[in-house]
Design a protein around this nucleic acid. Structure first.
Length: 106
DNA sequence: ATTTTGACTTAAG
DNA sequence: GCTTAAGCCAAAA
């Protein structure tokens, strides 16, 4: 199998994000860290933006490090994202996700 | 090839 | 606890 050098870490991001169970969320930094680039949190966001609510990439389960969210390219954006997470059983706290109980732990 | 922008994170006030 | 500033990675102009 040949290695896709350019988007190598992108595929990792998708793979990891796909492993995140329902009702759990993951931060951009965590995804980047698991992908092999702990400082590429921004790049992760760029990747998500190009891929909307693709059935293969649950970008709505990706939140910021402090539990809040920065953006979402699907539905109404942020509100839709919150709604989806809430439907999955994610506990919210003043508009922010409770990372203490809802953050995915590999 | 260089500059700008962006779904980020951490540190400091 | 919230706001402001600086740093980092990758894609788009």
């Amino acid at each position: 199998m040949m290695v896709t050098m350019s988007s190598e870490f992108y595929e990792k991001i998708y793979t990891i994000l796909r492993k995140v169970p329902k009702g759990k969320v993951v931060t951009y930094g965590q995804l980047a860290r698991l992908a092999g680039s702990p400082r590429a949190a921004r790049a992760v966001g760029t990747c998500m933006r190009n891929n909307p609510d693709a059935p293969r990439t649950p970008c709505h389960r990706v939140v910021a490090s402090n539990g809040s969210m920065h953006g979402y390219s699907g539905g109404d954006g942020i509100p839709t994202k919150i709604k989806m997470l809430r439907e999955e059983g994610v506990q919210f706290k003043g508009g922010r996700v409770d990372l203490k109980i809802s953050q995915w732990q590999p």
